[in-house]
Design a protein around this nucleic acid. Sequence first.
DNA 1: GACCTTGTGAGACAATTGTCTTAGGATGCG
DNA 2: CGCATCCTAAGACAATTGTCTCACAAGGTC
Lengths: 134, 134
Amino acid sequence: MAKRPPTIPDSELDVLKVLWERGQATVREALETLRAAGRQWSYATVATLLDRLETKGLVESDRSELAFVYRPTISSQEVQQRRVNSLVDKLYQGEPGLLVLHLLKSHALDANQAMEVRDVLDQMSGGKPKKKNV
Amino acid sequence: MAKRPPTIPDSELDVLKVLWERGQATVREALETLRAAGRQWSYATVATLLDRLETKGLVESDRSELAFVYRPTISSQEVQQRRVNSLVDKLYQGEPGLLVLHLLKSHALDANQAMEVRDVLDQMSGGKPKKKNV
DNA sequence: GACCTTGTGAGACAATTGTCTTAGGATGCG
DNA sequence: CGCATCCTAAGACAATTGTCTCACAAGGTC
Protein backbone atom coordinates (compact mmCIF):
# COMPACT_ATOMS: atom_id res chain seq x y z
CA MET A 1 0.00 0.00 0.00
CA ALA A 2 2.27 2.77 -1.05
CA LYS A 3 0.26 5.92 -1.27
CA ARG A 4 1.20 7.41 -4.55
CA PRO A 5 2.93 10.74 -4.33
CA PRO A 6 0.70 13.73 -4.95
CA THR A 7 0.93 15.33 -8.35
CA ILE A 8 2.39 18.80 -8.52
CA PRO A 9 0.79 20.90 -11.20
CA ASP A 10 2.80 23.58 -12.91
CA SER A 11 1.38 26.51 -11.06
CA GLU A 12 2.03 24.90 -7.71
CA LEU A 13 5.52 24.05 -8.81
CA ASP A 14 6.21 27.69 -9.52
CA VAL A 15 5.23 28.60 -6.00
CA LEU A 16 7.26 25.76 -4.56
CA LYS A 17 10.28 27.00 -6.44
CA VAL A 18 9.99 30.31 -4.66
CA LEU A 19 10.03 28.55 -1.32
CA TRP A 20 13.09 26.58 -2.33
CA GLU A 21 14.86 29.77 -3.30
CA ARG A 22 14.09 31.73 -0.19
CA GLY A 23 13.69 28.92 2.29
CA GLN A 24 10.32 30.21 3.37
CA ALA A 25 7.83 32.93 2.56
CA THR A 26 4.49 34.44 3.38
CA VAL A 27 1.85 34.67 0.71
CA ARG A 28 2.78 38.25 0.06
CA GLU A 29 6.48 37.57 -0.19
CA ALA A 30 5.89 34.73 -2.59
CA LEU A 31 3.60 36.94 -4.60
CA GLU A 32 6.23 39.67 -4.92
CA THR A 33 8.86 37.20 -6.00
CA LEU A 34 6.54 35.68 -8.54
CA ARG A 35 5.53 39.08 -9.84
CA ALA A 36 9.16 40.00 -10.22
CA ALA A 37 9.60 36.82 -12.18
CA GLY A 38 6.76 37.71 -14.51
CA ARG A 39 3.81 35.79 -13.07
CA GLN A 40 0.81 38.08 -13.00
CA TRP A 41 -1.14 36.41 -10.26
CA SER A 42 -3.47 37.85 -7.70
CA TYR A 43 -2.78 37.51 -4.02
CA ALA A 44 -5.61 35.02 -3.68
CA THR A 45 -4.20 32.77 -6.34
CA VAL A 46 -0.90 32.41 -4.56
CA ALA A 47 -2.73 31.81 -1.30
CA THR A 48 -4.78 29.07 -2.90
CA LEU A 49 -1.74 27.41 -4.37
CA LEU A 50 0.09 27.44 -1.06
CA ASP A 51 -2.97 26.05 0.58
CA ARG A 52 -3.22 23.24 -1.91
CA LEU A 53 0.45 22.48 -1.49
CA GLU A 54 -0.07 22.25 2.23
CA THR A 55 -3.02 19.93 1.78
CA LYS A 56 -0.77 17.71 -0.28
CA GLY A 57 1.79 17.77 2.47
CA LEU A 58 4.46 19.44 0.36
CA VAL A 59 4.75 22.57 2.45
CA GLU A 60 3.94 23.37 6.03
CA SER A 61 2.97 26.64 7.63
CA ASP A 62 3.88 28.44 10.80
CA ARG A 63 0.65 30.07 11.86
CA SER A 64 1.86 31.84 14.94
CA GLU A 65 2.12 35.18 13.20
CA LEU A 66 -0.61 37.09 11.51
CA ALA A 67 0.60 36.17 8.06
CA PHE A 68 1.32 32.48 7.83
CA VAL A 69 4.87 31.55 6.93
CA TYR A 70 5.20 28.65 4.52
CA ARG A 71 8.15 26.33 4.27
CA PRO A 72 8.69 23.43 1.88
CA THR A 73 8.75 19.93 3.31
CA ILE A 74 9.98 18.40 0.09
CA SER A 75 13.29 19.16 -1.55
CA SER A 76 13.74 20.16 -5.15
CA GLN A 77 15.93 17.08 -5.51
CA GLU A 78 13.07 14.88 -4.54
CA VAL A 79 10.74 16.50 -6.99
CA GLN A 80 13.35 16.21 -9.70
CA GLN A 81 13.78 12.58 -8.86
CA ARG A 82 10.09 11.91 -9.15
CA ARG A 83 9.68 13.73 -12.40
CA VAL A 84 12.66 12.11 -13.99
CA ASN A 85 11.62 8.65 -12.89
CA SER A 86 8.16 9.19 -14.20
CA LEU A 87 9.50 10.43 -17.52
CA VAL A 88 11.86 7.50 -17.85
CA ASP A 89 9.11 5.05 -17.01
CA LYS A 90 6.61 6.54 -19.37
CA LEU A 91 8.75 7.34 -22.39
CA TYR A 92 12.07 5.53 -22.09
CA GLN A 93 11.09 1.98 -21.19
CA GLY A 94 12.39 2.53 -17.71
CA GLU A 95 15.91 2.88 -19.14
CA PRO A 96 17.58 6.03 -17.86
CA GLY A 97 20.40 5.41 -20.29
CA LEU A 98 18.10 6.00 -23.21
CA LEU A 99 17.18 9.38 -21.86
CA VAL A 100 20.81 10.28 -21.35
CA LEU A 101 21.62 9.37 -24.90
CA HIS A 102 18.67 11.28 -26.18
CA LEU A 103 19.72 14.34 -24.24
CA LEU A 104 23.29 14.24 -25.41
CA LYS A 105 22.29 13.77 -29.00
CA SER A 106 19.89 16.63 -29.11
CA HIS A 107 21.66 19.14 -26.91
CA ALA A 108 25.39 19.64 -26.99
CA LEU A 109 27.00 20.14 -23.61
CA ASP A 110 29.57 22.77 -22.98
CA ALA A 111 33.12 21.60 -22.37
CA ASN A 112 32.90 21.79 -18.61
CA GLN A 113 29.82 19.72 -18.36
CA ALA A 114 31.16 17.23 -20.86
CA MET A 115 34.18 16.81 -18.64
CA GLU A 116 32.03 16.34 -15.60
CA VAL A 117 30.04 13.72 -17.35
CA ARG A 118 33.19 11.85 -18.26
CA ASP A 119 34.28 11.97 -14.66
CA VAL A 120 31.04 10.54 -13.44
CA LEU A 121 31.22 7.81 -16.01
CA ASP A 122 34.77 6.98 -15.03
CA GLN A 123 33.88 6.68 -11.41
CA MET A 124 30.81 4.69 -12.13
CA SER A 125 32.18 1.41 -13.39
CA GLY A 126 35.24 1.41 -11.22
CA GLY A 127 37.95 2.22 -13.71
CA LYS A 128 37.79 3.37 -17.23
CA PRO A 129 37.12 0.63 -19.73
CA LYS A 130 39.92 1.52 -22.05
CA LYS A 131 40.03 -1.13 -24.69
CA LYS A 132 37.27 -3.38 -25.65
CA ASN A 133 36.16 -5.08 -28.78
CA VAL A 134 34.99 -2.56 -31.32
CA MET B 1 1.79 33.51 -32.35
CA ALA B 2 3.06 30.08 -31.65
CA LYS B 3 0.13 28.00 -30.57
CA ARG B 4 1.43 25.97 -27.69
CA PRO B 5 1.51 22.26 -28.27
CA PRO B 6 -1.43 20.38 -26.81
CA THR B 7 -0.83 18.61 -23.55
CA ILE B 8 -0.93 14.83 -23.59
CA PRO B 9 -2.35 13.39 -20.40
CA ASP B 10 -1.16 10.02 -19.21
CA SER B 11 -4.16 8.06 -20.34
CA GLU B 12 -3.95 9.47 -23.83
CA LEU B 13 -0.27 8.76 -23.89
CA ASP B 14 -0.93 5.11 -23.18
CA VAL B 15 -3.22 4.92 -26.17
CA LEU B 16 -0.76 6.77 -28.34
CA LYS B 17 1.91 4.28 -27.40
CA VAL B 18 -0.24 1.51 -28.77
CA LEU B 19 -0.50 3.31 -32.06
CA TRP B 20 3.25 3.78 -32.18
CA GLU B 21 3.78 0.10 -31.57
CA ARG B 22 1.35 -1.17 -34.16
CA GLY B 23 1.42 1.70 -36.58
CA GLN B 24 -2.34 1.97 -36.51
CA ALA B 25 -5.34 0.46 -34.81
CA THR B 26 -9.08 0.50 -34.46
CA VAL B 27 -10.64 1.19 -31.11
CA ARG B 28 -11.10 -2.49 -30.52
CA GLU B 29 -7.57 -3.39 -31.44
CA ALA B 30 -6.19 -0.73 -29.19
CA LEU B 31 -8.45 -1.93 -26.43
CA GLU B 32 -7.22 -5.49 -26.74
CA THR B 33 -3.61 -4.41 -26.67
CA LEU B 34 -4.22 -2.23 -23.65
CA ARG B 35 -6.08 -5.00 -21.89
CA ALA B 36 -3.21 -7.35 -22.55
CA ALA B 37 -0.94 -4.74 -21.04
CA GLY B 38 -3.04 -4.55 -17.91
CA ARG B 39 -5.23 -1.50 -18.52
CA GLN B 40 -8.77 -2.35 -17.51
CA TRP B 41 -10.59 0.13 -19.64
CA SER B 42 -13.96 -0.07 -21.28
CA TYR B 43 -14.37 0.18 -25.01
CA ALA B 44 -15.89 3.63 -24.65
CA THR B 45 -12.94 4.93 -22.70
CA VAL B 46 -10.50 4.03 -25.42
CA ALA B 47 -12.81 5.53 -28.01
CA THR B 48 -12.99 8.75 -26.06
CA LEU B 49 -9.24 8.93 -25.70
CA LEU B 50 -8.68 8.38 -29.39
CA ASP B 51 -11.26 11.01 -30.13
CA ARG B 52 -9.55 13.51 -27.87
CA LEU B 53 -6.22 12.72 -29.43
CA GLU B 54 -7.71 13.38 -32.83
CA THR B 55 -9.16 16.69 -31.68
CA LYS B 56 -5.70 17.66 -30.54
CA GLY B 57 -4.34 16.72 -33.92
CA LEU B 58 -2.09 13.98 -32.60
CA VAL B 59 -3.75 11.16 -34.47
CA GLU B 60 -5.85 10.97 -37.58
CA SER B 61 -8.49 8.49 -38.60
CA ASP B 62 -9.41 6.67 -41.74
CA ARG B 63 -13.18 6.54 -41.67
CA SER B 64 -13.80 4.61 -44.83
CA GLU B 65 -14.44 1.38 -43.00
CA LEU B 66 -17.07 0.69 -40.43
CA ALA B 67 -14.58 0.80 -37.59
CA PHE B 68 -12.36 3.86 -37.87
CA VAL B 69 -8.66 3.20 -38.14
CA TYR B 70 -6.46 5.55 -36.17
CA ARG B 71 -2.89 6.45 -36.98
CA PRO B 72 -0.53 8.74 -35.06
CA THR B 73 0.52 11.99 -36.66
CA ILE B 74 3.18 12.68 -34.09
CA SER B 75 6.22 10.54 -33.47
CA SER B 76 7.30 9.23 -30.13
CA GLN B 77 10.53 11.12 -30.64
CA GLU B 78 8.66 14.35 -30.86
CA VAL B 79 6.73 13.65 -27.72
CA GLN B 80 9.93 12.70 -25.95
CA GLN B 81 11.50 15.91 -27.13
CA ARG B 82 8.68 17.98 -25.76
CA ARG B 83 8.58 16.27 -22.43
CA VAL B 84 12.30 16.47 -21.94
CA ASN B 85 12.45 20.11 -22.90
CA SER B 86 9.66 20.92 -20.55
CA LEU B 87 11.34 19.04 -17.73
CA VAL B 88 14.65 20.75 -18.34
CA ASP B 89 12.99 24.13 -18.45
CA LYS B 90 10.96 23.61 -15.34
CA LEU B 91 13.41 21.84 -13.07
CA TYR B 92 16.90 22.18 -14.50
CA GLN B 93 17.20 25.86 -15.29
CA GLY B 94 17.04 25.07 -18.95
CA GLU B 95 20.39 23.28 -18.65
CA PRO B 96 20.17 19.80 -20.18
CA GLY B 97 23.60 19.10 -18.78
CA LEU B 98 22.28 19.27 -15.25
CA LEU B 99 19.71 16.64 -16.03
CA VAL B 100 22.32 14.42 -17.60
CA LEU B 101 24.49 14.70 -14.51
CA HIS B 102 21.58 14.03 -12.26
CA LEU B 103 20.66 10.94 -14.23
CA LEU B 104 24.15 9.56 -14.25
CA LYS B 105 24.59 10.13 -10.56
CA SER B 106 21.41 8.45 -9.52
CA HIS B 107 21.25 5.59 -12.01
CA ALA B 108 24.29 3.66 -13.07
CA LEU B 109 24.46 2.82 -16.74
CA ASP B 110 25.44 -0.55 -17.99
CA ALA B 111 28.77 -0.85 -19.75
CA ASN B 112 27.34 -0.67 -23.24
CA GLN B 113 25.42 2.46 -22.63
CA ALA B 114 28.36 4.04 -20.85
CA MET B 115 30.45 3.40 -23.91
CA GLU B 116 27.82 4.86 -26.16
CA VAL B 117 27.70 7.94 -24.03
CA ARG B 118 31.45 8.36 -24.30
CA ASP B 119 31.22 8.06 -28.04
CA VAL B 120 28.59 10.71 -28.27
CA LEU B 121 30.63 12.98 -26.06
CA ASP B 122 33.72 12.45 -28.17
CA GLN B 123 31.93 13.28 -31.35
CA MET B 124 30.28 16.26 -29.82
CA SER B 125 33.11 18.71 -29.33
CA GLY B 126 35.19 17.19 -32.04
CA GLY B 127 37.47 15.14 -29.86
CA LYS B 128 39.21 16.01 -26.64
CA PRO B 129 38.08 19.02 -24.63
CA LYS B 130 40.26 21.64 -22.98
CA LYS B 131 40.48 24.35 -25.55
CA LYS B 132 39.06 27.80 -25.32
CA ASN B 133 37.22 29.78 -27.95
CA VAL B 134 37.32 28.40 -31.45
C1' DG C 1 -14.51 53.66 19.02
C1' DA C 2 -14.83 54.05 13.92
C1' DC C 3 -11.79 53.02 10.02
C1' DC C 4 -8.45 51.27 7.07
C1' DT C 5 -5.19 47.67 5.98
C1' DT C 6 -3.69 42.89 5.70
C1' DG C 7 -4.79 38.37 6.23
C1' DT C 8 -7.32 34.05 5.95
C1' DG C 9 -11.50 31.11 4.74
C1' DA C 10 -14.81 29.54 1.73
C1' DG C 11 -16.02 28.77 -2.38
C1' DA C 12 -17.16 30.10 -7.36
C1' DC C 13 -16.35 28.77 -11.96
C1' DA C 14 -14.48 27.21 -16.35
C1' DA C 15 -11.24 23.89 -18.60
C1' DT C 16 -9.08 19.46 -18.50
C1' DT C 17 -8.76 14.65 -17.32
C1' DG C 18 -10.46 10.00 -16.32
C1' DT C 19 -14.17 6.87 -17.16
C1' DC C 20 -18.42 5.41 -18.34
C1' DT C 21 -23.68 5.23 -20.09
C1' DT C 22 -26.97 5.56 -23.43
C1' DA C 23 -29.00 6.20 -27.98
C1' DG C 24 -29.11 5.08 -32.50
C1' DG C 25 -26.91 3.75 -37.12
C1' DA C 26 -24.95 -0.04 -39.92
C1' DT C 27 -24.12 -5.21 -40.61
C1' DG C 28 -24.58 -10.13 -40.52
C1' DC C 29 -27.41 -14.12 -40.29
C1' DG C 30 -31.38 -17.24 -40.11
C1' DC D 1 -37.42 -9.20 -42.62
C1' DG D 2 -36.14 -9.25 -37.67
C1' DC D 3 -32.78 -9.50 -34.32
C1' DA D 4 -28.26 -9.64 -32.27
C1' DT D 5 -23.85 -7.17 -32.89
C1' DC D 6 -20.54 -3.78 -33.30
C1' DC D 7 -19.66 0.94 -34.08
C1' DT D 8 -19.77 5.95 -33.39
C1' DA D 9 -21.99 10.19 -31.31
C1' DA D 10 -23.17 12.69 -27.51
C1' DG D 11 -22.66 13.68 -23.26
C1' DA D 12 -22.76 12.61 -18.13
C1' DC D 13 -20.13 13.15 -14.08
C1' DA D 14 -16.56 13.54 -10.54
C1' DA D 15 -11.74 15.09 -9.56
C1' DT D 16 -8.11 18.24 -10.58
C1' DT D 17 -6.20 22.56 -12.09
C1' DG D 18 -6.02 27.56 -12.84
C1' DT D 19 -7.72 31.91 -11.15
C1' DC D 20 -10.42 34.83 -8.84
C1' DT D 21 -14.39 37.14 -5.74
C1' DC D 22 -16.36 37.99 -1.48
C1' DA D 23 -17.02 38.00 3.40
C1' DC D 24 -15.06 38.62 7.52
C1' DA D 25 -11.29 38.64 11.52
C1' DA D 26 -7.15 40.89 13.64
C1' DG D 27 -4.40 44.97 14.22
C1' DG D 28 -3.01 49.61 13.75
C1' DT D 29 -4.51 54.75 13.52
C1' DC D 30 -6.50 59.03 15.05
